[in-house]
């Protein structure tokens, strides 16, 4: 008998929308190879939409962004999180000072948690000072 096979079914929550469907990711030797809806989940009762069914396709997709990109001289370049955050914070501050807080708007996401959505609206209203915040569903 050799080493055990690294095969796991990992229970997780779909990141595609706010429904919060549960499924298992089928993981073989560190690679996500399949998605199977969780039948005992009270949310989706073993059902998924086409996006949920294909979650395993994007998790390790080669085109998935792994680092922030910053446009430099018209070209997107990979940069560190520190550089990306510094740039964004600096520009937001400059724009707020030169054009006022209502010149800035925020679009939040169905793919993040309630708490993260709360944080962004708090940031928009309290830190930046604008009510320009909306949800990706109305994009």
């Amino acid at each position: 008998m050799g080493a055990p096979i690294n095969y796991r079914t990992v229970l997780t929550t779909c990141t595609y929308c706010g429904c919060g469907c549960n499924f298992f990711l089928e993981v073989l030797d560190g690679k996500v190879i399949g998605t199977i809806p969780c039948k005992t989940s009270p949310v989706n009762e073993g059902k998924l939409c086409i996006k949920g069914w294909n979650v395993h396709e994007f998790v390790q997709h080669e085109k998935r962004l792994k680092t922030p990109l910053l446009r430099k001289n018209g070209k997107l370049e990979e940069v560190s999180w520190d550089e990306a955050l510094d740039f964004t914070a600096t520009r937001l501050r400059q724009i707020k000072e030169s054009s006022g807080p209502d010149s800035i708007g925020f679009l939040t996401s169905a793919k993040v948690t309630n708490e993260e959505n709360y944080l962004l609206q708090k940031f928009a209203r309290a830190a930046v000072g604008t009510n320009n915040i909306d949800h990706c569903a109305r994009l």
Binding site: M1, P4, I5, Y7, R8, T9, L11, N22, F24, E26, I36, C38, K39, T40, S41
Partner: peptide, 13 residues
Amino acid sequence: RKNGHIAPHLFQK
């Protein structure tokens, strides 16, 4: 039975 759910699982030695 794990995490309060029933999951497909590979049992090994």
